[in-house]
């Protein structure tokens, strides 16, 4: 229904309104033999049940050589585990028959689980599903090149997020320092998540996939304490002082 409406509007205007939307997708990289890999996935899934529900998943097949039939079978197997594959990377276009997810290109790696961050931080991440933590407290600054991903809830940083660093949180992000890098809140699909910081000099702020780069942020907010939230699909930012 709605698609029809949009199309007619577009005809009347002679232009099609498009909006950019970014999501953090999880890339699964199966390794041969596939049966063992699936078993390992099941094993892992037992301690993190429902991890993939509602999350975009990409299947990266660059490391394996699979027949057309085997690809279709693998996608089915994943679907049976409630993992809906959004797109496939690393295969020839001719290998994807009808009924399979589309071929995707140009993906950027985003160090979701493995990152430069200290091992204790990694440990905190992997323990999330079991301990059901709802917040992550970082007592050290997030350095350039580090990526902290915590989809289980809020992230509080006592210190700064450096230029070239990123924090990705399922919930809100609180920074008792300066955001000079990227802060991506609400990344598990929470439009109500917010971003707070003592001093804003961000490269990028995002909530639930809606983002603003520093170019699109009002210059008068530079260097001030701010909060950012979503109103519909518009990101609002105001100074806190």
């Amino acid at each position: 229904m709605s698609e029809v409406t949009v199309t007619s509007v577009a005809h009347a205007r002679h232009s099609m309104p498009f909006r950019g939307r970014s999501f953090m997708a999880f890339a699964l990289t199966p390794e041969p033999p596939i049966a063992d890999w699936l078993a390992e996935l099941d094993n892992w899934g037992r301690s993190s049940a429902g991890f993939f529900v509602g999350r975009p998943v990409i299947l990266d097949l660059a490391a394996v050589t699979l027949s057309d039939h085997a690809i279709a079978h693998l996608v089915q197997e994943l679907a049976a585990r409630e993992i809906a594959v959004l797109g496939i990377e690393g295969v020839e276009p001719s290998q994807l028959g009808p009924g399979l997810p589309p071929l995707l290109k140009g993906g950027r790696p985003a160090n979701v689980i493995e990152s430069d961050a200290a091992s204790q931080r990694r440990a905190a991440l992997t323990e999330v599903p079991r301990q059901e933590l709802t917040s992550l407290l970082l007592e050290v600054p997030v350095r350039s090149g580090q990526s902290v991903v915590f989809l289980g809830g809020d992230v509080t940083v006592i210190g700064s997020i450096a230029s070239g660093a990123e924090v990705i949180a399922g919930g809100s992000i609180h920074v008792y320092g300066t955001i000079r890098g990227r802060a991506l809140a609400g990344s598990n699909g929470s439009p109500r998540a917010r971003i707070f910081c003592r001093k804003a000099e961000p490269e990028l702020l995002a909530i639930d996939g809606y983002y603003r780069t520093s170019e699109d942020i009002d210059g008068s907010l530079q260097g001030r304490p701010i909060q950012a939230w979503l109103e519909g699909n518009v990101m609002k930012i105001t100074a806190l002082d």
Binding site: S119, Q120, V140, R143, S144, G164
Partner: peptide, 25 residues
């Protein structure tokens, strides 16, 4: 200068992750 400072920040992160001392906690 900004580029040097940002690269230093990156190195500090690596010092906290990749050295034997850091790996021992």
């Amino acid at each position: 200068e900004v580029s040097s400072v940002r690269d230093s920040d990156r190195i500090i992160g690596l010092l906290d992750a990749k050295t034997v001392k850091a790996e021992k906690g």
